Computed example of a mutant assay.
Amino acid sequence: MTDSVLIVEDDKDIADLIRVNLAELGVEVSHQDQGNKALSLAIEKEYSLLILDVMLPGISGLDICRQVREKKPHQAIIMLTAKSSETDRVLGLELGADDYMTKPFSVRELQARVRSQLRKVEMLRAANSDVMAENDAPLVIGNLSIDQKNHQVTFNQQVLELTATEFELLHHLASHPNQVFSRSQLLESVWGYHHSGYEHTVNSHINRLRAKIETDATSPQIVQTVWGVGYKFSPQGVE
């Protein structure tokens, strides 16, 4: 199955640059420069990945991200933000973007980010189509079950609605209980790249994951912070 990418960008030169370089990856690329039209397309059609600029005619990329995430929890989304706009980057991640890139950006870096997201999409497809091995048993720790075959997380008999990236982040941490990972290590293992300056991506996903799994996200017992180092999964928190 050929992957499809929707570029939502009102700067034609940037959109053309992205289109040409994604074509090298063998994906089908569509482009929309109007926010409202892009939102309709993103909801009505099935795209492997959305690349959303923040500033758009009509509604913003942030609004598109929020509304798409509500209707399609597993949709892969990369936000494009201005280099100086820290607020947009943080808000984009908090609203559910899987990753972000700041303009101007390296096309090679863009390709790497896109490949990383498409790998997650392929894993999700495999889970949904029973391609994964029948003996691929869920990872069970206490009252937490992480089922890769069905791409499902159950905690205290409740199914958690996680994005593909949140799922991979939790699975990676839980697969190495009590091991502390730095933000850079998590970027490399979960997102598939390491670029300095993007550590906030990890912070925001940890916050979103805690909001879904912790009894009190302000006092996390499962995904814990090791100050000055990074994060770890505590098995005691799920018993």
Rank of each mutant, 00 (worst) to 15 (best):
V68L: 00
R89F: 03
P57E: 09
E46M: 02
M79C: 06
S85E: 14
I77D: 05
G58Q: 11
I59L: 11
I59G: 02
P73S: 10
K71P: 03
T81E: 12
S48F: 05
I77R: 04
R69N: 06
D98V: 03
E86F: 02
E44S: 14
E70K: 13
R66E: 14
S60H: 08
P57A: 08
I59R: 02
Q67T: 09
L49V: 06
I51R: 05
A97I: 09
G96A: 06
L62Q: 09
G96S: 07
R89C: 14
G92M: 07
G92P: 04
S85K: 13
Q75S: 04
L91P: 00
K72A: 05
I64S: 05
P73D: 04
M79D: 07
V54N: 09
T81F: 07
K83G: 06
E94G: 00
S84I: 11
K71S: 11
G92H: 08
C65D: 06
T87H: 12
D88T: 03
S85I: 03
L50W: 05
M55H: 12
P57F: 00
A82N: 07
L80T: 10
H74Q: 14
V68S: 05
K72W: 01
D63K: 13
G61S: 13
I64K: 05
K45V: 04
L49D: 13
A76F: 00
P73W: 00
K72T: 00
L91F: 04
M79I: 14
V68F: 00
Q75I: 04
S84Q: 12
L91N: 13
M79P: 11
E86N: 10
G61Q: 08
L56P: 11
I78D: 12
H74L: 09
V54E: 05
A76E: 15
I64H: 02
I64N: 07
L52W: 06
L50R: 05
G61L: 10
L80K: 02
T81G: 10
E86T: 15
I59N: 01
R89K: 15
E94M: 10
K45D: 15
L56W: 01
K83N: 12
S84T: 14
G92F: 05
R89T: 15
L95W: 02
L95A: 09
H74C: 02
M55S: 13
H74R: 14
G58A: 08
D53V: 09
K71I: 01
K83E: 13
K72C: 03
E86I: 14
L62H: 03
E46S: 13
V54T: 14
P73C: 01
Y47F: 15
K45Q: 15
K83Y: 10
Q67V: 01
A82H: 09
G58W: 07
R89D: 12
K72G: 05
L62G: 09
V90R: 15
L52T: 13
V90L: 15
R69V: 10
I78G: 11
C65G: 08
A76D: 06
G58Y: 09
H74G: 03
K71V: 02
V90D: 11
L91T: 14
D53N: 11
C65F: 04
G92Y: 10
G96E: 07
S85G: 01
Q75K: 04
A82I: 07
M55E: 10
D63Y: 00
